[in-house]
Amino acid sequence: MRVVIAEDLALLRDGLIRLLQAHDCEVVSAVDNGPDLLAALLEQRPDVAVVDVRLPPTFTDEGLQAAITARRRVPGLPVLVLSQHVEQLYARELLSGGQGGVGYLLKDRVFDVGQFVDAVRRVAAGGTAMDPEVISQLLAKQAPSGPLATLTSREREVLGEMAEGRSNSAIAARLFITDKAVSKHINNIFAKLDLPPSPDDSRRVLAVLTYLNG
């Protein structure tokens, strides 16, 4: 897997490179600022990019902006965004194109190496990996508006697990229900959110996007 890394702190950048190299990834480019990141993304077309939100020269959301710009030019370019804090707003912006291949995680998630590498692989494969923190903010909402209001609380739970990027069997294991029950819930979600039949992956992304917008 060819990976681009953008992180301005050398300590963390080296750590990420080592971590990913130890898990069969080839780091084709490791940059420390926004403009270099955009150039690397467009030239290298990596299988996945691991990007810090805050980068020089502005030290604002340079990394996020570069990722969004690159995905606008190369739809579906897989990007896993890391940050010291998560904002539902950013998650929404990343997914707004309706294309999968997006991850958005707290930097802490790197601690659990196995799960982190899983998330990188999932994003590279076109899936999503939303931080549990984003999901818990959404679940805390008592009164969802729009189409989400029609979902049962179980369906919203399943949708939250989907947004984190879990497979049907993983969701089944987490919620102590059968695989069959999970697929039933997911079909209900697709129907209630009025998502047209299409390859399962892109429907999942659209469902997650609706969820984030709710």
Partner: peptide, 15 residues
């Protein structure tokens, strides 16, 4: 809040 640094008042209030 970091989002205030990154997005200013408008973005932070939206977030």
């Amino acid at each position: 809040p970091p989002v205030l640094v990154e997005r200013g008042l408008e973005g932070a209030v939206q977030a």
